[in-house]
Computed example of a mutant assay.
Amino acid sequence: MRVTRGVCAALAAALLTTVVAACGTGDDNPTATDLPVDLATLDVGGYATQPREVGVVANMDQARFVEAQRLGDVVPAPFDIDSRFVNPSPFMASVFIDPEASLGKIMAVDRFAEIAPDFIGGFVSSAQTEPDNMGMDMVNAIMIFPDAQQATAAATALEQLDFGYAPNNQPIEIPGYPAAKAHWQPDQQSIGSWYATGHLVIYTWFFDYLKIWLNKVDKQVLLDLVRKSLDTIVPSVAKFTPTPTGQLMTLQRDREGMLGRTASRPREDSWIEPPGVYAGHTSIHFSSGPVERKAMIEDNGVDLYTNDGADVYRARDIAGAQAVRDTLGGLTRKFTTVESPKNLPSARCKEYIGKERLAIRFYCAVSYDRYAAYVWSHQLLDVQQRIAAQYALLVNAA
């Protein structure tokens, strides 16, 4: 199996979206700063303020992405598998149709298209026990195939390809999952497993940087972790209903108008993840603070989440949306408050003052009705214009 790693600088912004504790007003009465706003007085720059109609997918690549996003709604977060895995792994996309983009650093993919034909799309769930490769990594990549037969064949073929990548790889059996195809490196605390279940292949990878640095190996620990991971993931992904291959081009890109009321992503922004709509809890996968994000989602009844040129959350009520806004716009020691846009005092804006040199500098959050939105930019005026335009979008979509 492959063990080389790289960190994608374009994900630096995602690492700064850690949420902080906050609370709502406890009722549906707007606070003094949430009084009606005259949209005509807002400086929105050149950003759109009218909702858009987002229909069916335009091509097969879009269809494959949407199918993978649907899968993401049933993939457990790493800390739901093991509570130690709470630090993000910033080197791979979560939604992918190109295996190289998400798996190329940890498994052999040079012949992926040849040995796993008709691959549709996948969703990666990953985390570390410690930041900066100081602990253990967990990766679960769930891949969709047209049918169970092709998934089973792909699991076998992909394991065989990866097995040949390192001469010291040895086959190993996962307790409780005799059908899993797996191998490990006896001189390293590393293991890879491929398990087919229905139309899906679950690729599980653990890599312990600390034990490798200490020249320690514990095979049983690796086996127990893979089994624990599969015990959590297999029943969860069983809830996924694959779209028949012939119907992929009928998939809708939007859900309940969420993407239509979310700002479009400018070309100059990062495109690590494609625009998409998810169940609220799925946003945990995209957060650098998964435990706090889970609390925010559950405490405020967030049922839908979308990411594009903004992150937009739909809460159970107005108070819930305001609490989400205050959480996203809240401060930690790495942020300081900056001024809200003119004539939009309810927006919460902040500046990053930490040491991450690739970090995006400015962030703003706002809410309207049941919706809360979060935007970012390297420039203060731009982030103010973005949040003002996003606020107008929410109002105009009501």
Rank of each mutant, 00 (worst) to 15 (best):
T306M: 03
D34R: 12
A392T: 00
Q50S: 10
P30F: 02
C364N: 01
F96A: 05
G6V: 10
P76K: 03
D27G: 09
D61V: 06
H183K: 07
T31M: 03
E339M: 14
R386M: 15
P341D: 09
A315G: 13
P146L: 08
A10E: 15
L39K: 11
A359G: 12
A10Q: 14
E268W: 04
Y363K: 00
V109P: 00
R84Y: 03
T152Q: 15
V383N: 06
T337S: 15
L331G: 13
R5F: 07
G135M: 09
Y352I: 07
I233V: 15
M143G: 01
G320D: 09
Q128A: 11
H285R: 05
E114Y: 09
R111L: 03
I142L: 11
M1I: 13
N59D: 15
K350Y: 08
D43Y: 06
P235F: 12
F335R: 01
P171G: 11
V237T: 13
T4V: 12
A372M: 11
Y195K: 14
P99M: 12
S89A: 14
V37P: 05
D231F: 12
Y374G: 00
F91G: 13
L344N: 08
K239W: 09
K294C: 05
F96W: 01
T337G: 01
V221W: 13
A319H: 06
P76L: 06
V66G: 00
G354Q: 10
L214M: 14
T197P: 12
G122L: 10
I191Y: 06
N140L: 04
A295W: 07
G257E: 08
D187P: 01
Q189R: 14
I120N: 04
H183N: 11
D28Y: 07
R253A: 06
A157C: 13
P146G: 11
V37N: 08
V312D: 02
I297W: 07
P275D: 07
T243F: 03
A295V: 13
A141L: 01
K342G: 08
L394R: 01
P131L: 12
V217D: 00
D369C: 01
G45A: 12
K105V: 07
T4N: 15
R70S: 05
N140C: 15
A373M: 06
